[in-house]
């Protein structure tokens, strides 16, 4: 039986757009607009999408780095949005984050050891006398050398710094780690090291990951389930196999077909989307993807599609498109 660790209900995150003569709020960026999903204990749930789809905003809202506009976030049954500042700070022990640029989030004047011990001190997870010992353990766990504990962040390479970031996240024994583009800035050979490390740590410490990324190769490698977002909405949610082998939403299909495959002999059909992603200020009515969708009809322009599961889809696989049936049956096809 899968246990729900985090449940997000109808989350909305609007950012005001100031303007006009007196700097009034004239509009909102609907960065995340009414999304609902859950994360099960021990799994890796990935959120993918292109820039501006709201994936990072979702992560930040869960951590309450920005206060959500509306919605509920339940962590182990407790509503995080109902917590006051102090309670939330304590809760951060269970919810840790790893950012894309570890350098920006590591104090340059602290050694790695100090960084780790400070994190432990704030959350009081280990008695002071054992902190250094624990820091050394962590350093070795993430594949660094214990001699490196007294070095400063600038003495490390990008990949090593990301390992330090991971060690810091681990130092407080979290339950959920939100990895926001955690491997995006790394070179392929280093990225693979860090991905393998993340998988190993998940097994060892029974961690749950919310993995935010734009690289579908990385996502396929690390995820159990995947959410695809477009302009603040979830367009498809599925287990990994279904998403990659049986994608239902036209956007997911286009996204998958757009990625270059490192195999020159593999010819494939590509759905090239026209135009750019519209602005999240005043997003399109109805289905937000309709301006670029090759299948869009009248209903798409007026009615917001719900996430649906149909017979030909696996349990838990849902997509938000009015035309799933017709596209599946081949009645609707892309003319090339």
């Amino acid at each position: 039986m899968k246990k729900e660790l985090l449940k997000v209900n109808n989350l909305k995150q609007y950012f005001p757009v100031k303007g006009g003569f007196l700097g009034r709020t004239v509009n909102h960026v609907k960065a995340v607009d009414d999304i609902t999903f859950e994360i099960y204990e021990g799994e890796t749930l990935s959120v993918v999408g292109e820039s501006g789809c709201g994936k990072s905003t979702t992560g930040r809202a869960i951590l309450r780095l920005e206060e959500p506009t509306d919605g509920e976030i339940h962590f182990e049954g407790e509503d995080l949005l109902a917590l006051n500042k102090r309670e939330m700070r304590e809760k951060r022990k269970d919810l840790q984050v790893i950012f894309q640029d570890p350098y920006a989030s590591l104090n340059p004047r602290q050694t790695v050891g100090q960084i780790l011990m400070e994190a432990m001190q704030i959350q009081k997870v280990v008695p002071r006398s054992e902190q250094r010992k624990r820091a050394i353990e962590l350093i070795e766990t993430v594949g660094l050398n214990k001699e490196q504990i007294d070095r400063y962040p600038h003495e490390f390479s990008g990949g090593q710094r990301q390992r330090v970031g991971i060690a810091r996240a681990l130092s407080v024994d979290p339950k959920l780690i939100i990895a926001d583009e955690a491997v995006s800035a790394l070179d392929v050979s280093i990225q693979a090291q860090v991905l393998n490390l993340l998988r190993r740590l998940q097994r060892e410490f029974n961690l749950t990951y919310l993995f935010i990324a734009h690289d579908l190769g990385v996502v396929r490698h690390i995820s159990d389930r995947i959410i695809v977002m477009y302009l603040g909405k979830i367009v498809e949610i599925a287990d990994k196999k279904s998403l990659f082998e049986n994608p239902q939403h036209p956007y997911t299909k286009a996204l998958l077909s757009a990625i270059p495959i490192p195999d020159p002999e593999k010819k494939k059909e590509r759905i090239v989307l026209k135009g750019d992603v519209p602005s999240p200020i005043d997003p399109p009515q109805g289905c937000r993807f309709h301006t670029r969708c090759p299948f869009a009809t009248e209903i798409c322009r007026t009615k917001v599609p719900e996430l649906r599961n149909l017979d030909h889809m696996k349990e838990g696989h849902r997509a938000a498109c009015h035309h799933i049936e017709k596209i599946h049956s081949g009645e609707m096809a892309v003319q090339s």
Partner: peptide, 24 residues
């Protein structure tokens, strides 16, 4: 060879990536 083995792919499942050890 190391580069090709390090690359996570979206079109096939790879059990474990084989990274190149060490740093650039």
């Amino acid at each position: 060879v190391g580069l090709l083995n390090s690359m996570p792919r979206h079109d096939v499942d790879v059990d474990e990536l084989e990274p190149i050890k060490g740093n650039v």
